[in-house]
């Protein structure tokens, strides 16, 4: 198995772990981290799978660089929202209360 393929398999596992975490975790900080794990899993599959023949491919590498910056922006907004929510309610989870 090539290195790229190992990365792709690891990415698939991380993606599913992050997805499950994003769905079931209650604490907002953990949830945001889980979503980052999920995104990183997808990035690993994108780069790893494209390079499964052992030759580097600059196109998915550039895509992942773009994706990382987008993920940074989304994480910053999520953390800002979570802090603002905490500042107003003292709560760290979203459970219950809404229709």
């Amino acid at each position: 198995m090539s290195t790229g393929l190992v990365f792709a398999h690891a990415g698939a596992v991380l993606f599913v772990l992050g997805l499950a975490g994003g769905l079931v975790l209650g604490h907002l900080l953990r949830r945001i981290l889980a979503l980052n794990v999920m995104g990183s899993g997808a990035f690993l599959v994108l780069v790893g799978l494209a390079q499964s023949d052992g030759q580097p491919d600059p196109v998915p590498q550039a895509m992942v660089l773009t994706g990382i910056v987008v993920a940074v922006a989304a994480t910053a907004l999520a953390l800002g929202l979570a802090r603002a929510f905490h500042a107003r309610t003292g709560r760290t989870r979203l459970d219950g209360g809404e229709e």
Partner: peptide, 21 residues
């Protein structure tokens, strides 16, 4: 439910990635 579906998705992804090259 999430755990079951997660395992199924992980299995499907692993198989899809494994047979691609």
């Amino acid at each position: 439910l999430v755990a079951t579906l997660g395992l199924a998705l992980a299995a499907a992804l692993t198989r899809a990635i494994g047979e691609l090259p």
